Lab assay of single mutants.
Amino acid sequence: YFQGQLNAMAHQIQEMFPQVPYHLVLQDLQLTRSVEITTDNILEGRI
């Protein structure tokens, strides 16, 4: 994955969860590489 793709995914998640800091979303995406998994992590309070 290149950074631009991760940034696009992070923006997509931020639209759904504007209360979660962008850098935390991006940090999780770098591990998961998945909008779905990061979204689940937010919903389950891991982020």
Rank of each mutant, 00 (worst) to 15 (best):
P18G: 03
M9K: 05
M9S: 05
Q30V: 12
P18Q: 05
E44C: 11
P21R: 04
D40L: 15
P21I: 06
G4F: 12
V25F: 03
F2Q: 12
L26Q: 04
V35N: 04
A10W: 07
Q12M: 12
I42H: 01
E36A: 13
Q30H: 10
A10E: 01
T32L: 02
T32A: 01
Q19G: 11
T38L: 02
L24P: 01
I42S: 01
F17G: 00
T38P: 01
N7R: 14
L43N: 08
N7V: 14
L24C: 06
T32K: 00
L29R: 01
M16H: 08
M9D: 06
E44L: 12
E36R: 10
T32N: 03
I13E: 00
F17T: 00
L43M: 09
P21F: 05
T32V: 02
N41A: 03
L31N: 12
N7M: 15
F2L: 13
V20Y: 10
G4W: 13
I13S: 00
G45C: 06
I13W: 01
Q5H: 11
Q14V: 14
P21D: 08
M9N: 03
G45V: 04
H23P: 06
M9E: 05
S34M: 02
I37C: 07
L29S: 01
E44S: 15
V25D: 00
I42Q: 00
D40C: 15
Y22V: 07
F2S: 15
Q30D: 07
V20R: 00
T32I: 01
M9H: 06
R46V: 06
S34L: 03
M16P: 00
Q14N: 10
Q12N: 07
I42A: 02
E44T: 13
E36K: 13
Y1P: 09
Q5G: 10
T32Y: 05
S34V: 03
G45S: 05
F17Q: 01
F2V: 12
H23D: 11
G45E: 05
T32C: 04
P18H: 03
Q27S: 10
G45I: 04
Q27E: 12
Y22S: 04
L24D: 05
Q5R: 09
P18L: 03
H23F: 10
A10Y: 05
I42Y: 03
L43S: 08
M16G: 05
S34P: 02
I13V: 10
N41P: 02
T32E: 01
Q12E: 09
A8L: 12
D40H: 15
T38E: 00
P18N: 04
N41D: 01
S34C: 06
Q14T: 12
E15I: 13
H11A: 14
I13P: 00
I37R: 13
Q27W: 11
M9P: 01
A8P: 04
E36C: 10
Y1K: 11
I37F: 07
Q3M: 11
M9L: 13
G4Y: 12
I47K: 01
Q30R: 13
H23A: 07
I13G: 00
R33V: 07
G45T: 02
Q3C: 10
N7F: 15
G45N: 08
N41V: 05
Q30G: 06
V20A: 05
L6D: 04
Q30F: 12
Q5M: 14
Q3N: 11
Q5W: 15
M9I: 09
I47F: 08
G45P: 01
F17K: 01
M9Y: 09
Q19T: 11
Y1R: 10
T39W: 08
T32F: 04
L43H: 06
H11E: 10
L43Y: 06
E44A: 15
Q5E: 15
N41S: 04
P21V: 04
Y1W: 14
V25M: 04
Q12S: 10
T38D: 01
F2I: 12
L43Q: 08
H11Q: 13
E36N: 08
R33Q: 15
Q3G: 08
Y22E: 03
A8Y: 11
A10P: 00
A10L: 09
Q27C: 09
Q30K: 13
Y1M: 11
I37L: 11
R33C: 13
Q5F: 12
Q12I: 13
L31H: 11
L31C: 07
L24W: 09
I42L: 07
V20M: 08
I13T: 01
L43W: 06
R33H: 15
D28A: 04
Y1T: 12
D40Q: 15
P18E: 04
H11L: 14
Q19N: 14
I42T: 01
R46M: 07
Q14W: 15
V20E: 02
E15K: 14
L24G: 02
I42D: 01
T38H: 02
N41H: 09
Q19R: 10
E44N: 15
E44W: 11
S34Q: 03
E44Y: 12
N7L: 14
L26N: 01
T32G: 04
I37H: 09
E44M: 13
E15C: 10
L6T: 04
E44H: 14
V35P: 08
L31T: 12
V25T: 02
Y1D: 14
M9Q: 07
D40V: 15
S34T: 02
I42E: 01
H11R: 13
G4C: 11
D28M: 05
E36T: 09
T39A: 10
F2H: 13
Q14H: 15
T39N: 03
A8H: 10
Q30S: 10
T32M: 02
Q19S: 12
V25G: 00
R33G: 15
E15G: 09
H23K: 08
L29C: 03
Q3V: 09
Q27P: 00
T39L: 11
I37Y: 07
Q12G: 07
D28P: 05
E36M: 09
F17C: 03
V35K: 09
E44G: 11
R46F: 07
F17H: 05
F2P: 11
Q12H: 11
T38G: 00
L6F: 09
D28T: 03
L6V: 07
Q27H: 07
R46I: 07
H11S: 13
G4T: 11
R33W: 15
R33E: 10
I47D: 01
H23I: 10
Q30Y: 13
I37A: 09
G4H: 14
Q14F: 10
V35S: 06
L26P: 00
F17P: 00
S34E: 03
M9C: 08
T38I: 01
P18R: 04
I47V: 11
F2N: 15
L43V: 09
Q27R: 11
L26T: 03
E15H: 13
P18K: 05
L29K: 00
Q27N: 10
T39D: 02
Y22L: 13
L26S: 02
T39M: 13
L31M: 13
Q14S: 13
